[in-house]
Amino acid sequence: MVKPLPFEEPVVRLKDKIEELKNITDDAHVDMTDEIRSLEERLQKLEADIYGNMTAWDRVQVARHSERPTTLDYIAYLFEDFIELHGDRAYGDDAAIVGGIASFGGTPVTVIGHQRGKDTKENIRRNFGMPHPEGYRKALRLMKQAEKFGRPIICFIDTKGAYPGKAAEERGQSEAIARNLVEMAGLRVPVISIVIGEGGSGGALGLGVANHIHMLENSTYSVISPEGAASILWKDAALAQQAAEAMKITAADLKEMDIIDEVVPEVTGGAHRDAAGQAEAIREAIRSSMDKLCPMKTDEIIEDRYRKFRNIGVYKEGEN
């Protein structure tokens, strides 16, 4: 049983009611078919209403759902023969970022993604999906390897942000992220990034300088968490709900600002309700990006990425 989120409660209550009536029908031999049918119709309407009118904050909750599929879940659905490759060759292996080589419908690709855990134990091992510098350096090592062998790169973005810790600072968290941005800009192979959960600031962007960026419908991408924004802007983290709206962090917002290429629709209620079904929608998005990007020449690939990021920004031109 998937844990319901607060905004889903009316749906869950109605579902329980229907279940109850069904049980009564079975046990007491009372025919409630008509009632059940009318309630089921109401449920459909209610679901359409609730899931069709999700607020930014609702989506934040879905994006953070403990059972939301992670990078490794999608890798299992989308690729064959995945071989995980470890380590940055300089300091260690960061379990908050996973990467390796796999086959996507017969084409060898390099896959990299943030990896959080689904329970406390795994979350501690994976540092809640918040990478240290060695994670970004491992990612860069695998990207350079992909470039050498002409493999497309697919990145899954799912992090609250790069880890704000003492050791991370000592080992150059800033440099690790910054290096990835510049190096990704110059990669001679196609790069496709998909935001599958939270896209938290620089820590997300470190895997995000891609030719195509896709976002799952209920994922978010932002410069700071809603809580952080609320505490900086209004000195009150409790105003996170308002901040989530004001900061424009949903997939639809980013599509409207022309920052991302495509919003990947989610299954009703969010990806955690049907990971396999969600993976198919992602497969479509990757497939369509690969079809567009793979035939491009090296120079075109780099130029395409340059154009994409060069044009982001809103300002008024003035006279000197």
């Binding site: 300088v209 410069v223 980013l254 982001i312």
Partner: peptide, 17 residues
Amino acid sequence: EGVLSLMQMAKTSVALS
């Protein structure tokens, strides 16, 4: 300026590259 600010990090990086 929200995520537009974040993306300036990428914009300057592609130019530096």
